[in-house]
Amino acid sequence: MTREWGFALRTCGSVLAGLSVLAACSSGGTERGPSPSPTRASPAPTGSGSSRPSASPAAPAGTAEDLVPDLDETKLPKTAAEARAAIGRIIVGQEVFGPDVVHSVPFESDPGRWPVLGEDCAWQTTGLPADVLATTTRYFHVPPKNGQGRLQLNVTVTVHHSREESGWETARAMEEVLRCPDQRLRANEQVKSLWGGVLYQGEQMNGWSEDAFNERGKYVGAEGGGPYLYIWNQAQFGPVTVAVAGKGAAGFTDKAIETVVIQGASRMMQHAEQEFGKAAG
């Protein structure tokens, strides 16, 4: 992403520290921790399912980038069909979040639509921009029970033509927070008091991605009221961005929401690096 936005806000080290811990766990082959980004206001779904604690100690010198493989240019998709196939291998299902999480209805976004944040700070959708080969958002939730509300989760994978294009996606995500700290997702949903930050690979324990963007604020929805925690984690590897959004609800702690968001983001980044990274050795 562009360095101009990268220096604007750098305040999300705690969440990224958690991602780094997950990345470390995945180095043995287990688990690792989109213009505008899809999304805080993901395209209207179609199909069959819906929709920064204290900083940790710095990583030892020379280890912050060890978990990010080199990009293998020969593996990169050249067509939309190839990109959609790769997304199918990168994106996660509800099993990654635990037994309480189920598909929403509808389950997946329209693959031909792209979210855009208007001048009025309201999200709308348009056709795919020229720099996007393919994108998919999936929608999950935890059904309300025992006094808890409906916790919502969105996961998104986007494949661009190049690393430069995916970097610009991250830059635009940062610009959107600076321009619109209060945003309307849909007619009955809002996020307020947003703030965000970017960490490049090697900064503040970001050893898990080339660029990591984190957005945080308060979610207010017609169904469950609020405000509750809203969190969006996005990461880049080569031409790919992966992202997870969590919309809080009654009865869920901020820590619980952060945990499931990090689980999804780290697993998809692991999949992306396996898909397009050079083999070790």
Results as ranks from 00 to 15, higher is better:
residue 104 S to N: 12
residue 153 L to Q: 08
residue 39 T to N: 10
residue 86 A to N: 06
residue 93 G to H: 02
residue 1 M to A: 07
residue 220 V to N: 01
residue 91 I to W: 08
residue 169 E to N: 05
residue 104 S to W: 05
residue 265 A to M: 01
residue 121 C to M: 08
residue 261 V to L: 10
residue 159 V to L: 13
residue 32 R to W: 03
residue 141 H to T: 06
residue 224 G to H: 01
residue 219 Y to V: 09
residue 133 L to T: 10
residue 132 V to P: 02
residue 241 T to Y: 13
residue 205 M to W: 04
residue 48 S to A: 11
residue 23 A to Q: 15
residue 216 R to M: 08
residue 119 E to A: 12
residue 107 F to K: 00
residue 69 P to C: 04
residue 195 W to E: 05
residue 184 R to T: 08
residue 101 V to M: 04
residue 49 G to P: 02
residue 140 F to N: 03
residue 159 V to Q: 09
residue 256 A to H: 03
residue 64 A to I: 04
residue 257 I to E: 06
residue 215 E to W: 00
residue 23 A to E: 14
residue 3 R to H: 11
residue 115 P to L: 08
residue 33 G to Y: 00
residue 146 N to Q: 10
residue 33 G to P: 01
residue 29 G to W: 08
residue 25 C to I: 15
residue 73 E to D: 15
residue 160 H to F: 13
residue 49 G to A: 09
residue 177 V to A: 00
residue 30 T to K: 04
residue 202 G to A: 06
residue 243 A to M: 00
residue 203 E to I: 10
residue 30 T to M: 01
residue 69 P to T: 11
residue 88 G to D: 14
residue 200 Y to H: 13
residue 76 L to I: 14
residue 210 E to S: 03
residue 165 E to P: 02
residue 247 K to Q: 13
residue 101 V to R: 02
residue 213 F to H: 09
residue 111 P to I: 13
residue 145 K to I: 12
residue 227 P to F: 10
residue 255 K to A: 07
residue 273 E to K: 02
residue 243 A to E: 03
residue 148 Q to P: 06
residue 96 V to R: 06
residue 135 T to N: 12
